[in-house]
Structure formats: C-alpha cells, structure tokens
Design a protein around this nucleic acid. Structure first.
Length: 288
DNA sequence: CGAGTACCCTGTTGGC
DNA sequence: TGCCAACAGGGTACTC
C-alpha cells in the first residue's frame, strides 16, 4: 500500500516527467475518482485545460501538482492514492489499463498522465492554496521527513494522548505518512507493543521511536527509489523493499530477525498487526 | 474536543 | 469445482 516512501517515489517521478508541461485534454473515466472535487468531474476537467503543471509536492501520503496559467493562482491538482492508486506516465498508444480512472493529455504529446485505481479509495481534485498547502489538507500534520517537522512538539503531543501507540502513529493529524506497514516495522525496531499507552512513554522512549520511524521510512525510500522507471511512475517501491527488508509485516509464523521467535499476526482496528511476542511483549496497561 | 467505530471499494485467497 | 467469507486498509463522517 502506498505510504510515505511510495508516494515520495511517485512525487519525484512526477517532478521529472510532468512538471513544466501544459495540460491540453482531460478525460474522467470514472466519477468516483473525482468525488472529493465538489463541483464535479466536468468542472474538474474544464478547469485544468490550458494550465501548466509547475511542480510536484507532497505532505504525508498526499501529493499535489501546483498549476500556472489561466484560472485561480495557487490552484493545484491534489491527489491521494488510497490503497491501490497509481499515477502512470505512459505513451498515448499504450493500451488503457483495466482500472484507468483519469487521463491527462499534454500539449507536447510525448506521454500522458494516467490515474489508475482498482479499489477507488484514492482520487483527484482541484484544490486552492496549492502553492504552499492545499486548504483541504491543512489538518494533515507534517511528516517526519519534512525539515520543518518539530520533534519535541511531536513528543509532547504524543505523551498528551490517551491511546495506544499504534493508533497514534496512524493518526495523520499527529504525524503523517505512516501507515499500517511502516507503523508495525517502526514498532518492531523500537521493541514496542502496539497497545503501549502513549501517556506512559517517557520522552527518551518517544524520541527513540521517532528515530526508528525515520529510519524505516528512509530505508524504504532508498529501496523505492531504485526501482523507479522513466515511463512508469508507480508504487514499485513495494516490490524492491517488501521482498528484502520487512522485519514483521506479513511475516506471520516466520522467525523474528532478532530473536527467532515466530512473528504473530493479530487483529487490530479491523486490519492486522504483526509483532514479535518476545521483543514486543504486551504492556501491563494496554490501550486499544 | 478527544477517542473510537462504521463504511467506502474490488480483486484475491482459502475453507468447505 | 463453486460458493462465500475474510482480507487488504486510508480517510472521513459519525457517535459517544
């Protein structure tokens, strides 16, 4: 699933392959992909024609493409990949993908940008304020890769919460970019159980966890960057990284890379958590 | 307001 | 072999 490293890989690809290009044609193949754009799909399409994409930015799992040209200054195409979304740069003659939702054609006809999404949890919209931060995502916290991320403010906010640590890591208004996979990986590195009460975490423990979150995101980012292909901007970070580097996620029954104890999968928030029962024992006062 | 839950969606997998 | 439940799970709307 696309989390921060995968979205950043996509962002870098878009910066290379679509920044500076003028949009000439917009085709919305599935209105659900534009559902977060209140004025509707036709408005979305019409508003983009003639605009030039001037960059590619990201916060957490959101990315946006600031626009220049006719229309409102500061507009941007805002995108979230959801669980299965891809932004692909393809030659026009390439056959349509089965789950093609939106196609952007450019004035220079070399390649087109396609939004493909099987499960349609992702989507595009036209957002205002995109030069800095689209208004729709002001509630999304900075991510830990952001140079302006405030470590001590995060540690303080975390310790004020009355919840379990994994819930807190997944709360995009507290820290963004971390999803189920990297939350489990960071907690394993930090030897913390997902139900550890945030208000029992000391500052050093919280700081160490943040360092592990950064480390696992950084490792994944480097792995994701290597599998990037010029004409295929996607979430391939998964294939390179997942196969080699995951320590707990998806490894139910397999030995812990530290102690050999079988990794265990358990239900958590209608999904799954993976942990080492030995390295990450259940706390005395767990929180859900 | 903070915390926690239901729901959206479709393809794949596994049990019977 | 075919059917159905479980699963994948981020974000938002909603309740308490």
């Amino acid at each position: 699933m696309p989390e921060l490293p995968e979205v950043e890989t996509v962002r870098a690809g878009l910066a290379t392959w679509v920044a500076g290009r003028r949009i000439e044609r917009v085709e919305v193949r599935h209105p659900r992909a534009i559902r977060r754009h209140a004025p509707g799909a036709e408005h979305f399409a019409a508003a983009l024609v003639g605009r030039t994409i001037v960059g590619a930015r990201r916060r957490g799992k959101y990315l946006w493409l600031p626009l220049d040209g006719p229309g409102e200054p500061g507009d941007a195409i805002l995108a979230h990949l959801g669980m299965s979304g891809q932004l692909l740069v393809q030659p026009p003659e390439e056959p349509d993908e089965k789950h093609l939702r939106v196609r952007l054609g450019f004035a220079d006809a070399g390649t087109e940008l396609r939004f493909v999404d099987q499960r349609t949890f992702g989507g595009l919209s036209l957002a205002a304020g995109g030069a800095e931060l689209p208004a729709e995502i002001v509630h999304i916290a900075r991510d830990p890769v952001d140079p302006a991320f405030d470590d001590e403010a995060f540690v303080a906010a975390l310790r004020r919460r009355r919840t379990g640590i994994k819930r807190a890591l997944l709360d995009q208004s507290l820290i963004s970019g971390v999803g189920n996979i990297y939350a489990d990986e960071a907690l394993w590195r930090a030897r913390l159980h997902w139900a550890r009460a945030t208000d029992t975490m000391t500052r050093p423990v919280a700081r160490a966890l943040l360092a592990d979150v950064r480390a696992v995101l950084g490792d994944a980012l480097r792995a994701g960057g290597t599998s990037f292909d010029a004409l295929y901007v996607d979430v391939n970070g998964e294939s390179g990284y997942f196969a080699r580097s995951l320590d707990v996620y998806g490894r139910d029954g397999e030995p812990c890379h530290r102690c050999g104890t079988p990794i265990r999968r358990e239900p958590f928030m209608n999904r799954s958590s993976y942990r080492c029962p030995h390295c990450q024992p259940r706390p005395r006062q767990p929180r859900p």
